[in-house]
Design a protein around this nucleic acid. Sequence first.
DNA 1: TAGGAATATTCCCGTCAAGGAATATTATAA
DNA 2: TTATAATATTCCTTGACGGGAATATTCCTA
Lengths: 108, 108
Amino acid sequence: MMDTTTFSALAEPTRLRMVEILKDGPLSVGDIAERLELRQPQASKHLRVLLEAGLVEVEAAANRRNYRLRTEPLEAMDAWLEAYRKLWSERFDNLDDYLRKLQSKDNS
Amino acid sequence: MMDTTTFSALAEPTRLRMVEILKDGPLSVGDIAERLELRQPQASKHLRVLLEAGLVEVEAAANRRNYRLRTEPLEAMDAWLEAYRKLWSERFDNLDDYLRKLQSKDNS
DNA sequence: TAGGAATATTCCCGTCAAGGAATATTATAA
DNA sequence: TTATAATATTCCTTGACGGGAATATTCCTA
């Protein structure tokens, strides 16, 4: 059973971009706001949602607050997806079978 | 760049359950409503969202409409996750390194 | 301790999504 | 063609969400 909180958090385009930006390392609120061309309050608000979803963590550094990506929810998504991967690999196998049959017909 | 449509669709618990139920094969609206204890209109409405998100496809069969899971959006999620997998595998590697160092210290 | 930079929070407003109930639509069978 | 089963759509209401603007908070530094 997958927690929909992660999906909710990532369903907002700005927050998805935040996650993508944070992939390369922690950033302060100001940096994030600047890169995404957001006003600071909006950045803080979206970061709060990501924080409560467990997708980021904060570390206070002097005046700044550095947000770092947390991978646990993404790992959970990855694990959730596991049950579905066989669906498209099966299809691929079927196609593979089909192509093999075609080839053996060609050779006969 | 990941389309947030998939996340939006899956952010709703009922729709996520629909996807999970459809993993084992196509189902009619009535079957879905029954299994999830939904009223039929709500089932239809949620299925419409999934349909527009490309997460399901419909096939009319007599009086029924059978909804089948489509894997493309899930494959896209899987591909999107790829860029993040190294984040937790790296951590694992670091832990692995750490444990190796501990062990070599023990042996000295 | 006062000032200022960085960040968080609150309030307000408009929009949108979801459920309930009723109704419309489609297709089958008699 | 008509009755009925299965499904879709509409209307209504309510609550949550996101942006803007203003303000509060926190922490450093002079």
